[in-house]
Simulated assay, not measured.
Amino acid sequence: MPAPPRITVEVPVLRVGDGPADYEGLGSFVQALRRPQGLHLTLLHVGILADFAQDIEDWTKGNTAAGSAIQATVHWLQALPELEGFAGSSDRLIVLGGGSIAGLEVAVPQHVMDYQVSLVQGLHELLDGLLVDNVDDFILSSPALGFRYPHWVPHVAVGQPPSHARGPWSISPLAVECGPSRIRNGQFLPTGD
């Protein structure tokens, strides 16, 4: 049985550098370079929806049922405004995910930073409406959300770092072209009221 899909708000990466050779060149820095077709930049990670809803029910000691949390979260996600495509750049590879992921650290335009901040503010409002107290503590401790740091670092995961390497590594500057925002695995969100 396949694992339930993780829900994120993200932008697809349409192109890294001037062509395939620029992206393939990153293979000299990382192991198991990911295929360029699936690259994305995550704006907000929600995680497995049922787990997120259960985290809310547990945190509120049952005052908000998981089913209500799922319904409210789906409505919130589907009402999010779309972020238009944009161009960023990267000149550095960093290590993420406790050392298991190598990613391009991406410099993004200010309006993208503002959009990501608005997503976090919206998440705060959603959780407040679901009777979650100490929202910041909840966000940093919810296993489903998986927030390790309160500060967002725009990045594109590209592979695995070399064994026991900590980075960061400077690279030749690369343009990173991104498409409009979307809900990853949005087709798996429940429908109906």
Rank of each mutant, 00 (worst) to 15 (best):
Q71G: 09
L174A: 05
K61S: 13
Y149D: 02
Q110V: 15
T64Q: 01
R92H: 11
I171D: 07
Q71E: 15
P4H: 06
A21M: 09
P168T: 03
L93Y: 09
L26M: 11
L77A: 04
V30E: 04
P4M: 12
I94Q: 11
A69R: 04
P168V: 02
A53D: 04
Q116V: 15
G167T: 13
E177T: 13
L140E: 02
R182P: 00
G186M: 11
S163W: 14
V106I: 03
F147L: 05
A72F: 06
T73G: 01
H45T: 12
T60I: 00
S142Q: 01
E177V: 13
L39Q: 02
P36F: 12
P4Q: 11
F138D: 00
L119C: 14
D55Y: 06
I48H: 06
V95I: 04
H111V: 14
R182N: 01
I139W: 07
G97R: 02
A102Q: 14
S89G: 14
D22G: 03
L49Q: 00
R6Q: 12
I94A: 07
R6W: 14
S118D: 12
R184W: 13
G98I: 02
G103Q: 03
S68W: 00
L39C: 02
A50R: 05
A175E: 06
V176W: 06
D55V: 13
R15D: 07
L26P: 10
G17M: 04
A72C: 01
K61N: 11
E84G: 12
H111K: 04
P20M: 10
S28K: 12
E10C: 08
H40A: 00
I56Q: 05
D91C: 09
W59N: 00
G67C: 03
Q121V: 04
L93G: 05
L119I: 15
S170D: 13
S28Q: 15
V11Y: 13
A21K: 13
Q160K: 11
R6E: 14
D114K: 12
A3D: 13
S100H: 03
P12I: 13
E177D: 12
A107L: 12
M1T: 14
D193H: 13
Q121D: 01
D91S: 12
G99N: 08
A107V: 15
L174E: 03
P154L: 04
F86M: 03
D55W: 10
A165L: 07
T8D: 01
P180Y: 07
H45K: 10
N63T: 09
